[in-house]
Design a protein around this nucleic acid. Sequence first.
DNA 1: ACCTGAACACCGTTCAAGT
DNA 2: ACCTGAACACCGTTCAAGT
Lengths: 224, 224
Amino acid sequence: MAVTSTDRSARRGRPPKGAAQLSREAILDATLTAIDTLGVSVVSMRGVAKILGVDAKSLYNHVEGKDDLLDAVAEHILGTVVIPCRTGNTREDLRAIAHAFRAGALAHPEAATLVLTRQVSSPAGLAPTEAVLQVLDAAGFSPDESVPLLRMLVATLTGTLLRELQAGPAFGVGAGIAEREAALTTSGLPFLARAAARIARFDRQAEFEFTINAVIDAVLIRHR
Amino acid sequence: MAVTSTDRSARRGRPPKGAAQLSREAILDATLTAIDTLGVSVVSMRGVAKILGVDAKSLYNHVEGKDDLLDAVAEHILGTVVIPCRTGNTREDLRAIAHAFRAGALAHPEAATLVLTRQVSSPAGLAPTEAVLQVLDAAGFSPDESVPLLRMLVATLTGTLLRELQAGPAFGVGAGIAEREAALTTSGLPFLARAAARIARFDRQAEFEFTINAVIDAVLIRHR
DNA sequence: ACCTGAACACCGTTCAAGT
DNA sequence: ACCTGAACACCGTTCAAGT
């Protein structure tokens, strides 16, 4: 019952021999697990700190703020993407990069929005971009030709993955394909009504394949 | 100095003859101007209420909550898109729809993220989709063929507009083209370094034209 | 060097009480 | 029918005080 000088409830300043030493990396890890668990929209500095058994304000010794932290998460995930080796077949090489990017992004579905939405400028984050430029160069495109093509590829990839994410965090079909089909059928829009069954269903893998192949077609058209 | 029964500071309940009668539409308008002024990330129920000279909690009589409100803003903007008449030229018709969509989205740049990011299911919001399906039908595509093509077009459009928005809210080039070019040049990634000058520059209109044309090429390839 | 107490200026939302 | 007071359970962040 005696209150000693190490009484935790009265402590202030650095803990005498606190268990986990706080670090930028530890904070980043905790943030990622918080995002995976609760979703990115619910994540908070205070919540991350709680995971680490620390006060929220302590985080500011290692991180500029919440925005900086979320940028770091995006960069971390992007750094996770393993760029495939080139085969010399332009179509297959572009496909492989797209699939690698998708795999990296979907490894943390709740964090994927960050990757797709935030501007990343670190070298690690730029590796996929570099890889695309390399493939286009090997295919014989000049930089003048490559950059717009790169932008189209990135835009399509981004858009496709965003759709995929909001189409349903769960695998395959989300809740209510029948409901969606019914809503479309009765929308009063004839072409949507006619295509309702096909629109209501969504095969993530197949849609990704189709879109990425089609957009690569658009690239290869410009090939001499 | 006398405190009467109409003393405002002690009032409770509906104002005797308050100026503006609150309505869903008025709330929506106020929200849109708040977004245009402050940016979507800063908008709050309390802020919107202040614009209307009302307490934040009053909004809940006309709106389900913040999420519902932002959905409504997205729908409103989408309902603003004027679908162009068909000309019979598939390429031109698809281009025209894309441009109409872009114009609608960019009319409120700070709100555009909502339009591109949220799932919209109201008939008004689905009009552009219906228009694309109609053009593809007129071009001779079956619904089975049209739906994946529609998805590719939407994905590319979404991705392109998102990039355009984050590339710079200001018109044309944002701050620091030279800085970005320098960063890319010294990134240690050779292909990025070589294309640095082209990547650092970004002509919104030209990039949009290129991408949309290229992706329509991918559609028309599949034309018999 | 690093952590926290106290503090500031905010959030979204519920619900009963008022008119 | 519609608005608000009181209240709840949160936010991100600063800064001086502590070790």
